[in-house]
């Protein structure tokens, strides 16, 4: 019975439409991540430092986007019976405070033999530019 349930679960990813979700890197998100990570690097906390390095203001933590990916996997898939196996991300543009990001998550490959799904994801800013993209692999548990 367990085996049949897993087979059916993996089936739901075959015709799954892309998951789309809007995120905002708000002050609350920024502070929560800062406290969680303990990362107070001046690029993220000192405007003067960020400007010296060529940015208009403090650059947001790239790994905030990984937290958003966690939400996409944990909350937006057609089943909650999932676990993240691996994840990679490439940053292409800096993200700043209060930026709105459109996330898109699509199925890339399904490994039915081991109930594994590969996804690719990207985050676009309001100008339509991709700020980050990557891949994430999950197991259906």
């Amino acid at each position: 019975m367990l085996y049949q349930t897993k087979i059916r679960m993996i089936e739901i990813f075959k015709n799954m439409q892309a998951v789309r979700h809007k995120f905002v890197v708000s002050q609350k998100v920024y502070e929560a991540f800062q406290q969680c990570s303990g990362d107070y690097n001046p690029l993220h906390t000192k405007v003067e430092f960020a400007k010296e390095k060529g940015f208009k203001e403090c650059v947001m933590y790239g790994n905030i986007l990984n937290a958003f990916v966690s939400m996409l996997i944990g909350e937006c898939l057609p089943t909650k019976d999932v676990m993240i196996n691996s994840q990679d991300i490439t940053y292409r543009q800096p993200v700043f405070l209060n930026d709105e990001l459109d996330a898109e998550l699509t199925v890339e490959k399904i490994y039915e033999s081991v109930n594994v799904v590969d996804f690719k994801f990207r985050f676009n800013n309001v100008n339509g530019k991709t700020v980050a993209r990557g891949h994430i692999q999950i197991s259906v548990i």
């Binding site: 196996n85 490994y111 033999s113 594994v116």
Partner: peptide, 12 residues
């Protein structure tokens, strides 16, 4: 059991 999944994925 977890690395077995990655072995199968890698082989496929």
């Amino acid at each position: 059991s977890l690395s077995h999944i990655q072995l199968v994925v890698g082989i496929e």
